[in-house]
Simulated assay, not measured.
Amino acid sequence: MGRLVDWAAETLATTVEIVRKPAGQVGFVVLPKRWVIERRIAWLTAHRRLARDYEPDPAVSEVLVGWAAINTMTRRLDRGRPATRQSRRTFSTSG
């Protein structure tokens, strides 16, 4: 086991599952559970302060991730319905 897997088991009492690419895979294939993590990272990086690593102190970054998660959940609860994608705007070029 790697150091992350050992640390998670000892410190957090949780299991980390590492999903690897199948041998002989050619082209794109959706890996199980990986999209969940990638989607979560996309939600977090939608917040301006988390788009880049500006913070020298990891504790500040940790707090900002917490705030971003709270903000995302608050917006979802306030909306009260499933998310919908905005319609694409088109601009008239006649002038």
Results as ranks from 00 to 15, higher is better:
Val30Cys: 03
Val65Glu: 04
Val36Asn: 02
Pro32Gln: 12
Pro82Trp: 04
Pro32Ile: 08
Thr14His: 13
Ala46His: 14
Ala13Val: 02
Pro56Met: 04
Ser87Asp: 06
Thr15Tyr: 09
Arg52His: 07
Pro32Trp: 08
Lys21Arg: 15
Trp43Lys: 12
Leu4Glu: 04
Thr14Asn: 02
Glu62Phe: 10
Arg75Asp: 02
Thr15Phe: 02
Ala46Met: 05
Thr15Lys: 15
Gly66Cys: 00
Asp6Asn: 04
Gln86Ile: 02
Trp43Ala: 11
Ile70Arg: 02
Val36Trp: 01
Arg89Asn: 07
Thr90Val: 12
Val16His: 08
Val30Tyr: 00
Val63Phe: 14
Phe91Lys: 10
Ser87Gln: 09
Arg89Trp: 05
Pro82Phe: 03
Arg34Trp: 05
Gly80Lys: 01
Arg79Met: 05
Ile70Gly: 04
Trp43Phe: 11
Ala13Pro: 00
Val26Gln: 15
Ser61Asn: 04
Met1Phe: 08
Thr45Trp: 01
Arg76Ala: 15
Glu55Val: 00
Arg40Phe: 13
Glu17Phe: 00
Glu55Cys: 01
Pro22Cys: 08
Pro82Ala: 10
Ala8Met: 07
Thr93Pro: 02
Leu44Met: 12
Leu44Val: 06
Val60Ser: 06
Pro56Gly: 12
Thr15His: 15
Val36Cys: 11
Arg39Val: 09
Ile41Leu: 15
Leu31Val: 03
Pro22Ile: 07
Lys33Trp: 08
Val36Met: 13
Trp7Glu: 06
His47Arg: 12
Leu4Asn: 08
Ala69Ile: 08
Gly66Trp: 02
Trp35Arg: 08
Ile70Phe: 13
Ala13Leu: 08
Arg34Asn: 01
His47Met: 06
Gly24Thr: 11
Glu62Gly: 10
Pro82Leu: 06
Trp67His: 07
Leu4Met: 08
Thr15Glu: 15
Arg79Glu: 04
Ser94Glu: 09
Thr72Leu: 12
Val36Arg: 02
Pro32Lys: 12
Ile41Gly: 05
Ala69Cys: 13
Trp7Cys: 03
Leu44Ile: 05
Glu62Val: 03
Arg76Gly: 15
Arg79Val: 01
Met1Ala: 12
Phe28Leu: 15
Ser94Asn: 01
Ile18Val: 13
Arg75Phe: 09
Val19Ile: 15
Ile70Gln: 04
Thr90Lys: 10
Gln25Met: 14
Ser92Gln: 09
Gly2Arg: 10
Gly27His: 03
Pro56Val: 13
Arg48Asp: 09
Gln86Arg: 13
Arg3His: 11
Asp53Gln: 07
Gly2Val: 10
Trp35Asn: 11
Trp67Ala: 09
Ile37Cys: 14
Trp35Pro: 07
Arg76Cys: 12
Ala68Arg: 02
Ile18Arg: 02
Val5Phe: 03
Ala9Gly: 12
Asp6Ile: 00
Ile18Gly: 00
Ile70His: 01
Ser92Arg: 15
Leu4Arg: 10
Gln86Asp: 07
Arg39Leu: 06
Val30Trp: 01
Val29Pro: 02
Arg20Trp: 04
Arg48His: 12
Gly80Leu: 07
